[in-house]
Design a protein around this nucleic acid. Sequence first.
RNA 1: GGGGCUGUAGUAGAGUCGGUUACAACGCCGGCCUGUCACGCCGGAGGUCGCGGGUUCGAGUCCCGUCAGCCCCGCCA
Length: 595
Amino acid sequence: MNDKLGNWKRTHRCGDLTAANVGQDVCVMGWVQRRRDHGGLIFIDLRDREGIVQLALDPDRDLASHQKAEQIRNEFVIAARGKVSHRPDGTVNPKMKTGEVEIEISELLLLNRSETPPFMIDEFTEVAENIRLKYRYLDLRRPALQSNLLKRHLVAKTVRNYLDGQGFIEVETPVLTKSTPEGARDYLVPSRVNLGKFYALPQSPQLFKQLLMVSGFDRYFQIVKCFRDEDLRADRQPEFTQIDCEMSFVNRDDVMSVMEGMIAEIFKVALDVEISLPISRLTYAEAMDRFGVDNPDMRFGMELFDITSQVAGSQFKVFAEVAANDGLVKAMNAKGCATLSRKELDELTEFVKIYGAKGLAWAKITDEGWQSPIAKFFTAEELAALNETLDVEVGDLLLFMADTPRVANEALGRLRGHLGQKLGLARKDDYKFVWVTDFPLLEWDEEERRHVAVHHPFTSPLEEDIPLLDSEPGKARAQAYDLVLNGSEIGGGSVRIHDQAVQSRMFDLLGIGEEEAREKFGFLLDALSFGAPPHGGIAFGLDRVMMILTGADSIRDVIAFPKTQKATCMLSDAPNEVAEKQLQELGIRLRTKQK
RNA sequence: GGGGCUGUAGUAGAGUCGGUUACAACGCCGGCCUGUCACGCCGGAGGUCGCGGGUUCGAGUCCCGUCAGCCCCGCCA
């Protein structure tokens, strides 16, 4: 029924044919985008990954192929031979890359038929995401995903070329590895030959890349899948890809310098955008102070101001009491936003409540001064001082947040990001990078009543802060750095601890006892005792980088076969139940589901 | 664990205050057409209104539950 391919050889991809090919005999293969049957002439738009070209089938030229074309439908797979020709005057299609030419077909093979697809394979048809995910192989035929994955390949290739040029060596690390405390929930894999024991899938190759430094590889990288069994978000799924790097004999400036070169190269190759280097830096403390978050969107201003001391003595009880109880009062000037309606202001209040804020105070600046429910609580002098601090002009909208430092910063900081989007201050084709440095080393976990590592337990403190580990560990800063792009953390790393004594002290601070440290990380501690070089590294989230490079709103649009929000695969229906025999072999009995 | 949005032919939508046989578009099928290009014209088929229950003389519409997809909080060293 279908034609056989035989020894036909493709000579060109559809999208690559131009006027330069006129006169050539070519052979193309691909999927039928569209058939336009004029009764006599038949046109077929043939598609492959490079684009679409028009085939012209004239019964006067070759009756057999014309008759065959009459039964052709969308997404049939065909091969066609013919001569590339200029289209007749007046029939050039300027909207198509190949619109100047067509192929005058002399031979046609129908290689395979297709059911009518559940949705059109084109750039126009909008399809619900669950349908797209079920028929992922068809969605992947469409131009948007084709383009995103081709670009992803280009970026991966650029990364390998760049890092190779910088003396990095790609080394594979185990996927079946060891569960360790700290960090995200592990994915576990039962071991059949060691009944009752489990591997964990790596949250990152962290320990192995440090061991490679001890082994003397000097510069390592890997484009590698990592796994974290946590809930999903628009930019997060449980298996994701890191560009993982580690370097020996370097300080953090060396790491940042090499890596921003790589980022600049990626943007040059993928988008033809020049990133000016060096990328600017903010300390964590400064980022929190000015933006309320550790991943500030630098595409716009609208910075936060700490007005705690200015309002501490005011008659406004809400502010004064927060100020008196080690809280924080912060304000933000949304320039020109006095036009926001009461409803919109209510929406902003609802927005900050998501982050635990109790409310949001506001003031519109009019010709008569402050129009605000809280204006009456302030003296003329206090208002004048706030106007000065916040650089107030008529037409501005001031937003105030008073709460614990954590809530005030986060709520107002997130509101700043939200408003930046809403007001159109954050353009997708504007790329503003910033390094955030000097993160705290440790964070107090109220629930567990102990310190936890902000970055990870192998992060070195700032050299000058090492004494603080014994006096005030909570104040120690880390040699850690995040690369933030347009408000998204796209990478993070640190200089590591290469001294066994400091590493042991760190475990101690984290409440990991001697015995547990030996059991969980003994191999690392041993390795550090055999001449570990000073080393540091970083990992970039390739998926997030690709989201920004492609303008995608969802991580699913840059991954060929992504997971749904419930971490399932709609295509393969994973995860699924397994045979009782498989469970027996693994020594696993399922507990009855609790309802 | 929690909050929110969505679910109607293959697809994406409309469906008023609860009231006749659930609309038109794209796609699909058949016919016509020798310069179209998201071809055009004529005709046709196609529905478990996510699922279950309830209220009602009557439910796509109202109520309760549930499932799925998405967004967010928690979580994500």
